Amino acid sequence: MKTSKHDVHKFDPYIKFLGDKKAVIGFAIVMAIIGISLSIIKSDWLWFSRFGSLITIAGLLLLSSPSFMKGIYLSNASAFGFASLDEDGNTRVTNEEDRKLGSKIFSGIVITILGTVVWGFGDLIGKLC
């Protein structure tokens, strides 16, 4: 059964790996190691705090993993028992409301990630200038 183009979000190919538990936990561990290493090297534990914001992102990604595993729209589809065919003859299992909800969840995840990075590293912009 081929998936309808209406059930595929434009960012699906890029975000599915974000739901991989091993990859996300690995990311969190690497961020902790980098944060600790920089803190020791620079004798400034503020670095570990900064990298803590990236570890928070890893937790957010795991909590949000259902939105990544099947795709942004399909993870929230309520019509699985009532699929229909689209104009190309492919099975469509989402409706307009599912796609709006999926987009809203995806936008929330992106904003949370960006906000967390700004929270952890935003003050460094002034040090670069």
Rank of each mutant, 00 (worst) to 15 (best):
K21F: 15
E87K: 09
L18Y: 05
G108Y: 15
G102C: 07
K127S: 10
M1P: 09
T116M: 06
V110F: 08
S49I: 12
T94L: 10
G102P: 05
N76Y: 08
K21N: 15
V30G: 10
N76H: 13
L124Q: 04
I29D: 03
E96F: 15
C129D: 03
G52V: 00
N90A: 14
H9I: 10
L124P: 06
L62S: 00
I33F: 14
S84A: 02
I36T: 10
R99F: 07
S64I: 00
D12L: 04
I57V: 10
S67K: 14
G102L: 11
A32Y: 08
G35Q: 08
G19P: 08
T3C: 12
A83Y: 15
T56Y: 01
V8A: 11
V117L: 12
N95S: 08
D44Y: 04
I41E: 07
C129P: 08
M1K: 01
G35V: 13
K100Q: 09
I36W: 07
K2L: 14
T116N: 11
L46V: 12
H9P: 01
F68Y: 02
T112H: 05
T91R: 12
S103G: 12
W119G: 13
N90W: 04
V93C: 15
I111K: 13
W47M: 03
I113E: 06
I15R: 02
D86S: 09
F68K: 00
L63F: 13
T94P: 10
R92Y: 02
G26P: 12
L46H: 15
N95Q: 03
D44I: 03
G89M: 09
W47D: 04
D44M: 13
G19N: 05
R99N: 14
V24E: 07
S67A: 15
L61R: 08
D12V: 05
M1Q: 00
D12I: 05
L114T: 00
N76W: 06
S49T: 09
R99G: 07
F121K: 10
S39L: 13
F51A: 03
I111P: 01
S4C: 08
S84G: 14
A23T: 14
K100W: 10
K5L: 10
D88L: 03
I109G: 06
A23R: 03
I55Q: 01
L128R: 11
K21M: 11
I29R: 09
K5R: 07
S78K: 12
A77S: 13
F106E: 00
F51E: 08
S103Q: 12
L62P: 05
D123A: 06
W119S: 13
G89H: 03
G19E: 03
L60R: 11
L128K: 01
T94F: 13
S84R: 11
L18F: 01
M69G: 14
T116Y: 02
